[in-house]
Amino acid sequence: METEKNFAMAISSALVNILKKDPAAILIGEDIGKYGGLFGCTTEPFEIFGKGRFLEIPVMENSIIGMSIGMALAGLHPIVEIQYADFLFMAMDQIWMNLTQLTKMCKNEINMPVIIRTSHGAGIGEGYQHAHSIFSLFLPLKEINIVVPSTPIDAKGLLISSYESQKPTLFFEDRTFYGTIPTVMGLTDMVSDDYYTIPLGRARIVKEGSQITILSIGKMVHRAADAIKESGVDAELVDLRTLSPLDYTTIKRSIDKTGKLLIINEEPVLTGFENMIVARLLSEDIKFSVAFVGSMDYPVPYSKEKERSWLPSINKISEAMKKLVNKK
């Protein structure tokens, strides 16, 4: 059955599907039981499956990931909720040193099917230690999926695909999405209750266009879509969906067509995935003009108004688009 689902409900629906399918799947996190998770993603799974499939843990992010590694070794499929992406810094050691390395250390004899779900991004006024988007930070780790869904439909399908990949996954959920139904350019807001997948490493062309290519991910896909409407530029909007694996084929095909690239990232400008993409294109002698829009390079402000201007605005993106179109 298909119903209208907000972002949190879509995540919740994916979790229900996974828990139903796989007895070895287990949810781990802080306040994920009766509290339902800080953002309400585990209320329904808890009601359906109860304590037996939930592991409520105290604050100890590094140990949580370490324990998930151990659980994976013992045959479980841990799905961890780290409340804020900012807290991933506390778990960086286990993610970097063990989670993403062990499989290669022993000739792929073991899998590390650990999914780390986390909320990220500025926009709800919690101040700079609860507002970072840090998905690009993990790009040097090749052995991890980096997923940043932009809609409820994608969130559910990509989460189930992450589970099926049996690889470590970082699943970034935009904090401003949870209670809303972020759809973009006519995409349906109906999400199926059934188990379905959306392949990792396949970007979605949100809108076809001929003048410029816009690459974006997560919340910025929506900003870009709005900016396209405002500017009137015939842009091709590509939602990357996952940074690792990266759908380079789609990126390249679009740039071959337009010759102009605008990358919109909510991480501080030129600190994120845009560098990797441009470097790769340049290494292949592809000729294109490029521009970037990112957030500001100072801490995320607490004040609502200042936080809003910290993120790339529709106006700013629209200006960058017009400038790039006119670039000779």
């Binding site: 151990g70 013992a74 045959g75 286990q94 063990n98």
Partner: peptide
């Protein structure tokens, strides 16, 4: 990495117990 193996051991033990 000093201390990393402790939580891994706990995780394995939890898996076994489960």
């Amino acid at each position: 990495i000093i201390g990393d193996n402790l939580s891994i051991a706990n995780g394995i033990a939890y898996g076994l117990k489960r």
